[in-house]
């Protein structure tokens, strides 16, 4: 006698295409992810210019100053005003000195909000000049239109 065992049919879909697509998506995002986002600040909307181009190589010894719309300066996560910025810059320069470099070797990258007062940027440059800094880079976003 033949005994038939009844098996419950499991409704199994073929997962292969879904997994393929998911891995493709992961690969896409992994390639495009940019961890150098630390350079940007959500409070700063850069002005645009048709002439600027991303540099071929990053600037040496950068000191990045974010200038918000209200004129607040952000350096290394700390907030400063033009009056207190000098102390922050001196701290950065101390690190530079340990590496055997002079202030003239440093590049001050100013990421100013497009609506901030131009005088504020001038004052920041003046404070940096007082700390013997000479090289400034005014950052703007590329306008391809």
């Amino acid at each position: 006698m033949k005994v038939k065992s009844k098996k419950v049919d499991l409704a199994e879909g073929d997962l292969t295409p879904m997994i393929d697509m998911t891995f493709q998506l992961i690969a896409f995002f992994m390639v495009l992810i940019n961890f150098s986002q630390t350079e940007s600040n959500e409070r700063v909307v850069l002005p645009s210019s048709t002439l600027v181009k991303p540099p071929d190589k990053p600037l040496e010894f950068p000191i990045i100053l974010h200038v918000a719309k209200d004129g607040e300066i952000i350096l290394g996560g700390d907030k400063y005003t033009t009056e207190t910025l000098g102390s922050g810059l001196r701290r950065e320069l101390a690190v530079l000195k340990v590496e055997g470099k002079s202030p003239a070797d440093a590049n001050v990258i100013i990421r100013g909000h497009q609506d901030t007062a131009a005088g504020q940027i001038q004052e920041i440059i003046k404070v940096a000049q007082d700390e013997q800094l000479e090289q400034f880079a005014l950052r703007a976003k590329e306008d391809r239109s």
């Binding site: 181009k53 540099p55 003239a104 000049q129 007082d130 000479e134 005014l138 703007a140 976003k141």
Partner: peptide, 11 residues
């Protein structure tokens, strides 16, 4: 994409 205008301004 961002780029810089380089300004050299000694004291």
């Amino acid at each position: 994409m961002e780029g810089d205008f380089t300004v050299r301004m000694p004291l």
